[in-house]
Every structure is written in structure tokens, then in C-alpha cells.
Amino acid sequence: MRAFFEGIENLFVNFLFAPYDFFRFMESWWAANTINWIFVIIGTVAMVYWLGQLRLFDSRGEEDRSITSHSYL
């Protein structure tokens, strides 16, 4: 099991988080957090899109709102 967890550590530290090592040594806070801001923007756009799709689905009345939807009800 130790090798398994060390493999996970190696994957994240040496590969997936490698771009953060470049930004860690920059002097500008804004430049160092560019990736984080990009992720926040992508997440916000995805959430707005998803909520719009939920609103369309709800307005079409496609959801089964009967009481017998689940056996435990």
C-alpha cells in the first residue's frame, strides 16, 4: 500500500501540480494566481450554464412530480 500512495504523491507533485511550481517563484501576486482565476471563471461559466439548463428543463415540465416517484414515499 505504501507504494500505491507514493505513486499518487508522485503523480500529483511531479506532474499535475508542476505548473504551480513555475508560478510560485514569481513576484506578482496576480500573475501567480492566474491559473486559479481561470479555474474560477470556468467554474462560474459552467454553473451559469447548468442553472440555465435546469431552468429550461423545469419550464418544459418534463420532471415526474408524482408522489409515487420513489417507493419509500
Rank of each mutant, 00 (worst) to 15 (best):
E63D: 12
F15M: 03
S59C: 01
E27H: 09
Q53W: 08
W29D: 10
S69D: 11
L73M: 12
F5P: 00
D58A: 15
A32H: 00
P19E: 00
S28F: 08
G61L: 01
M1Y: 04
R65C: 13
V13I: 13
M1D: 05
G7H: 02
W50E: 07
S69E: 12
W50V: 05
N10G: 05
Y49L: 14
S28Y: 06
E62Y: 11
F5G: 02
L73G: 09
L11W: 06
A18V: 02
A3I: 10
V45I: 12
M47H: 05
A46F: 06
I41V: 13
R2Y: 13
T68P: 02
V13L: 15
S59Y: 02
S71H: 11
L54M: 08
T34E: 09
F5N: 06
E9H: 08
V13S: 15
R60W: 08
L16F: 03
V40K: 04
D64N: 14
R60I: 10
G61F: 00
N33H: 09
R65I: 12
M47L: 11
N14Q: 07
G7T: 02
M1N: 05
F12K: 01
E6M: 05
L51S: 09
F5L: 08
R55L: 11
N36K: 09
A46S: 12
F22V: 04
G52H: 03
M26P: 01
D21N: 12
W50S: 08
H70T: 06
L56N: 13
N33G: 06
R65H: 13
G52C: 03
F17H: 07
E62G: 15
S69T: 13
W30Y: 15
E9V: 07
L11G: 07
D58R: 14
L56E: 14
I8A: 01
H70K: 09
A18N: 02
L51W: 13
D21F: 13
L73W: 12
I35K: 00
L16W: 03
F17S: 05
T44K: 10
